[in-house]
Amino acid sequence: MLRSWQDVIEKWQLLPPDAAQGPSGTRKIFDDARSALLAGRLDEAMRGFVHAAELYAGPYTEVGIGDVLLARGRWRAAARRYAAVEARDPGNLLAYLGMSQARVAAGDAAGAAEDLEARFGRSRDPVLRYYLASTWCSVTEQARSRTVNEALVITSERQLEICESAARRILELDVADQELRRGAELLLDEVAAGKRWQWRPEGIAVSLAVLAVSLGFILVAVGGLAGSVALVVMGVLLGSGLLYLIVVKFRRQNWRVRADDLAEHIVQRGA
C-alpha cells in the first residue's frame, strides 16, 4: 500500500525548470495537467497529460500519466510508464521515484528501500530523504503481520529487528514530516515493550521457580548436615537445572505472548 497521497506527488518538487518542452501551447497543457494532479483532480490530470503527450511526447508527460495510474491503484500500468521513461531518458529522477513507489505498491518495499539507500542514502535533499523515510515506513508495514481487523502486529523476532532498524533510520533521516517521525517513535516504543519479558502463566511459573530453588536449598542443607558432598552438588545442580527449565518453559517476551494470543486472528503473515 502507498503510505499517502504525498508519496505520489512529492517528487514533482524536483521537476527541472526546462522540463515542459515542446510548443508553448503544449507547455501550458502540461502545466495545467500537473496542477490538476497536485490538486488531486485525477480525471482532469489524465486528460491533460494524454493531450500533451499527443502534441509532444516528452518524458514528464509519461511520468504524469504514470502518477495518475499509481494514484488509482494501477501500479503495474504505472510501472510500465515509468520504465518507458527510464528507457528513453536514463537517469530521469521523477521516473525513478515513481518506479520505486510502484514497487512499494507491489509489496516490495524492502527492495525499494535498499535501492533508494544505495543511490540517495547520503543525500541532503529533503525530498529524497522524505522518500527514503516513507519507504522505510512501508517496510515496517509490509514486514508485520496483519489481523482480520487490519491491525499490524509483530509476530516474529525477524519482524522485531526489521521494525527497530527501519524506525531508527526514519528518525535518523530527520524529515520534516511529523507523521513519519511520530510513527517511528511509536514503533520504537512498541519494539521496546515487545522485548520485555514476562512469566506466562505468571502464578504457576513463579510458584514452580520458588519450588525449584527451595528444593535445591533443601538438598544442599541436608547434604551439608550429613557431610555429603555429593548431595550438596546434587542440590546445586538440581535447583539450577530446574530453574533453567522453568525459565525456558514459562518466560516469554511480550511480542511472543501477543503473537500467541492473536494467532487465530492473523490473516496475513509478515516477515
Rank of each mutant, 00 (worst) to 15 (best):
V229E: 09
V213D: 14
G223P: 04
G223A: 11
V233K: 05
G223Q: 05
L245H: 08
I246S: 07
V247R: 13
V248Q: 15
G194Q: 00
L237D: 05
G224Y: 05
A205G: 05
W199I: 05
E202D: 15
M234Y: 06
V232H: 02
L231H: 03
V247T: 14
S207W: 10
V233D: 02
V233Q: 05
M234P: 00
V248H: 11
V222H: 01
V220E: 01
L211E: 12
G223Y: 09
L187T: 11
L187H: 01
W199Q: 04
D189S: 07
G223H: 10
F217G: 14
A212Q: 09
G224Q: 08
R200V: 15
L243E: 08
L238G: 02
L208A: 07
G216D: 06
A226V: 12
L237N: 08
G216R: 00
L211I: 02
A226H: 06
A205I: 07
A205N: 06
L215K: 02
G227K: 06
V206E: 13
A230V: 06
L187P: 01
G194Y: 00
K249R: 14
A226N: 11
G239H: 02
G194M: 03
W197H: 07
S228D: 15
V248L: 15
E190T: 13
A226I: 03
S207G: 04
V213H: 11
A205C: 06
V210H: 12
A226G: 03
L219E: 00
A192K: 12
F250A: 11
V248C: 08
E185P: 09
G223E: 08
V248I: 13
F217K: 03
L188D: 09
I204F: 11
L215M: 13
R196A: 11
S228C: 10
A230Q: 07
G216A: 10
V222D: 01
A212K: 01
D189C: 04
A230L: 12
V236F: 13
L187S: 09
G224S: 12
R200C: 11
V206K: 15
